[in-house]
Simulated assay, not measured.
Amino acid sequence: MSKIQALGFGYIPEETKHHFFVVIPRSQNQKIAVYERFDWDDSEVQQSDIDYKSLKVRIDKHKWDLVKDPLQQEFNNTLRENNILVGRFKIGEIPVDRLLGKEMVLLLWAIEDSDPKLIPVALKNWLGLSREERWWLFTMTNAVTGQADDKRGWRKAIRYALTENPIDDEKHKQLNIFDLFK
């Protein structure tokens, strides 16, 4: 069975126009921008209807570089499970499936204003959430503070929940029944 063709990370324009759009500039000084879009023009090499109102988050290259590979791995695992060709984050414009985009933006919101040293904790906590939990948290946050510069309320709560709430591996270790008989 052949893999399903998709653009970027799982985006199939024939199925839906709703997607997220990551713009990765060549310059190290420019920020990565993520837009939520509801239109796709197959005739254009570069999508033109990108505007500030659809901008969800901007993040500096250093923080992006810290999460890019784990994001890519998590997304590609999901795509493989669904028999869809995998993607890669590279310089330029990358469309992302709407559900994967929600998960990505949630993580980026958590780290956008955090100390880079907290990013491993954010990744661990983000990976500890189910996909459905990530979608729900994105939806709740987006409903109130979904614009790029609106960093209050739910947006702050997401940052604290994912970056300043480290999972203690020892406390959360599953009980092995055989350990009781040692």
Rank of each mutant, 00 (worst) to 15 (best):
N29A: 08
V121G: 09
H172P: 04
I4Y: 07
Y11V: 09
S54K: 14
P95T: 06
Q46G: 13
L107K: 06
G87F: 01
R159W: 07
R131Y: 03
G128V: 01
F138S: 15
L108C: 07
E14C: 13
H172F: 02
V144P: 05
N83Y: 06
L162R: 09
K171R: 14
Y160L: 14
S48F: 02
K56W: 00
I91D: 15
A122F: 01
Q46L: 13
Y35P: 14
L100M: 11
G10N: 09
P95V: 02
E132P: 06
G146R: 04
L175V: 10
F181G: 10
I84K: 07
I167G: 06
V23W: 00
E44N: 15
S114Q: 12
D149R: 12
Y160G: 14
G101H: 01
L180A: 14
L175C: 10
D49Y: 06
I91L: 09
R155G: 10
E36T: 05
N165V: 00
E14N: 15
Q46S: 15
Q73Y: 03
V121C: 08
V96C: 06
P116A: 13
L55V: 06
F89H: 10
L71R: 12
H62Y: 10
S43M: 06
P120F: 03
L123G: 13
A148K: 11
I177T: 13
S114I: 07
Q46C: 12
D41R: 14
D168A: 04
V86D: 07
R88W: 00
L107G: 09
V34I: 07
V23L: 01
S130W: 02
I119C: 04
F38P: 06
G153E: 10
L127G: 12
R58Y: 00
E133I: 03
G146A: 05
H62K: 15
Q47I: 08
D179L: 05
V96Q: 03
L99R: 12
T145L: 01
T16P: 06
Q47H: 11
P116K: 11
F38I: 08
L118Y: 04
E81V: 03
D51E: 14
K68W: 05
G8R: 04
I94W: 01
F38Q: 10
W64D: 12
K90Y: 03
L106R: 14
G101P: 05
V67D: 15
Y35C: 11
K53E: 09
K56M: 03
I167A: 09
H18C: 02
I111G: 00
V105C: 09
R98F: 00
K31A: 07
V121Y: 02
I12Q: 15
D169R: 09
S48N: 15
S130Q: 11
T16F: 01
V34Q: 02
K117Y: 08
M140I: 12
E81W: 00
